[in-house]
């Protein structure tokens, strides 16, 4: 019996995957770019059938065959022709294998899964992006799109990192500035010669002339950072529903059927990763899960 659903959407009769079922599509490493000592951007192109188009903020499940599969947000810009970029930090066996796959190697790709940043609704909004560490990767495509939008809204990007060597996409930052965005970087500590800021990313908020009633904030980074940044933004007058956060739990299936990414009532691979901070999420992040 072929594992198809009633409408045949999962797989073709001979079991070929369309990329959203449990079977990955083969993708080839087109090029790699080292971003920092432990972060690499890997660009993937389909060998045969391509996955459905992604939106900024969505993620793919990437497989290093024989090693495993992890959720990686797309760091490229939707609609851009050519390979799909994923920026991967080396934190475990699978991300290590993905980041070290040589040009020409085959990786598996499923997706895209999850919710996106919703940049299409933001033409005339002031957008404040707050990213911590590798959290800038899932935001990169959205920032590219926002920096090129036709509208009246301003774009401000605040980036926090451990030290200046850990900052990713510094070349992109110049491009965003050239297009009129304000981009501020802050690190936890730095050697003299660093001309950016030193301090936690939330302290940069006090230096902005924020118009809360017309601002939407997009947050991605360590959960603690997002929690404090969101709380500060609410103090500054932003409505919690206009703060969007990208949340992470253990994601394995991408389809909302394996249970691992539960956060209370949410299945983050299905209901997230991008969610409004207001209501449920603010309460959930305030809870002690441990």
């Amino acid at each position: 019996m072929a594992p198809t659903t009633a409408d045949g959407a999962v797989a073709t009769a001979d079991g070929r995957a369309d990329g959203t079922s449990l079977w990955p599509l083969p993708y080839r490493v087109a090029w790699r770019r080292r971003e920092t000592a432990d972060v690499v951007t890997v660009a993937l192109e389909p060998v045969g059938a391509a996955a459905a188009p992604y939106r900024a903020g969505q993620f793919h499940m990437l497989t290093a065959f024989g090693v495993g599969e992890v959720a990686i947000s797309v760091s490229g810009t939707p609609g851009t022709p050519g390979p799909i970029e994923h920026t991967i930090r080396d934190v475990g066996a699978v991300s290590h294998a993905l980041g070290h796959a040589p040009v020409g190697a085959l990786l598996g790709l499923r997706g895209p899964f999850g919710t996106d940043w919703g940049v299409d609704d933001l033409a005339d909004r002031d957008v404040l992006v707050i990213a911590g560490g590798i959290g800038l990767a899932p935001l990169r495509g959205a920032i590219h799109q926002l920096s090129q939008r036709r509208g009246t809204g301003s774009l401000t990007v605040l980036v926090g990192a451990r030290d200046p060597d850990q900052l990713v996409f510094t070349a992109d930052m110049e491009q965003w500035r050239a297009r009129g965005a304000t981009v501020l970087c802050t690190v936890d500590a730095a050697a003299p010669g660093w001309r950016g800021e030193v301090g936690i990313v939330t302290t940069l908020l006090t230096r902005l002339a924020l118009a809360p009633e017309r601002t939407v904030a997009l947050l991605c980074g360590p959960e603690v950072m997002m929690r404090f940044a969101a709380a500060d933004l609410v103090d500054l007058g932003l409505h919690p529903d206009r703060i969007r956060v990208s949340l992470e739990r253990n994601m394995q299936c991408g389809a909302g059927i394996c249970g691992h990414c539960q956060l209370g009532p949410l299945l983050l691979c299905r209901d997230g990763p991008v969610l409004p901070y207001g209501g449920t999420v603010a309460a959930l992040l305030g809870q002690q899960e441990r």
């Binding site: 930090r89 590798i134 959290g135 990192a161 451990r162 360590p222 992470e248």
Partner: peptide, 9 residues
């Protein structure tokens, strides 16, 4: 936070 934080691994 960024040294060992759980961010987009």
């Amino acid at each position: 936070l960024y040294g060992h934080g759980a961010d987009n691994s």
